[in-house]
């Protein structure tokens, strides 16, 4: 299994990688490498995108994408911390067409702006809704 870890280190030299379970890894990357990491992973065979999501860490916002390879098992969660009050991150639509749906959902529920997404609208909540309910300070 360390073989996969070494390979991941090769693909993402700037990342801090640790194992979460068996063949599942978490890679922490700097904010400006977000798009570059996605592109490099896809070129290295991590072609299936499972999700793009975010976790509200109260003093910052942790944005993540989860991707995996087609022929082998295991996955990698790539995460980065961004400013919670102005959460902006480049969109991954140019890498994976399917990232669009996840980004719309994350924008709706978490309020993260994906710059470059062609159609960033609310999807699960009605268009006139105020606030982003999955944030920890949301009052309901």
């Amino acid at each position: 299994m360390s073989e996969q870890l070494n390979k991941l280190k090769e693909i993402l030299p700037y990342a801090e990688i640790y194992k979460i379970y068996k063949n599942k890894y978490y890679a922490k990357i700097p904010k400006d490498k977000w798009h570059d990491a996605a592109r490099r992973l896809k070129e290295a065979g991590y072609v299936l995108l499972s999700a793009v999501t975010a976790v509200d860490r109260l003093n910052s916002m942790e944005v993540m994408f989860i991707c995996r390879r087609l022929e082998a098992n295991g996955l990698v969660i790539v995460g980065t911390l961004i400013d919670r009050n102005d959460p902006r991150i480049p969109s991954l639509v140019s890498v994976w067409e399917g990232a669009h749906f996840h980004e719309r959902e994350t924008f709706d529920l978490m309020g993260v702006y994906f710059e470059g997404n062609p159609d960033l609208r609310r999807i699960l909540l009605p268009p006139h809704w105020v606030g982003h309910p999955l944030r920890k300070d949301y009052k309901w």
């Binding site: 979460i20 499972s50 999501t53 989860i66 969660i77």
Partner: peptide
């Protein structure tokens, strides 16, 4: 910690982070 559980649902990959 963080965990990602997936199973092969009748529709595809059902995943929980």
């Amino acid at each position: 910690g963080i965990g990602y559980g997936w199973v092969e649902d009748s529709r595809g990959e059902c995943g929980y982070m």
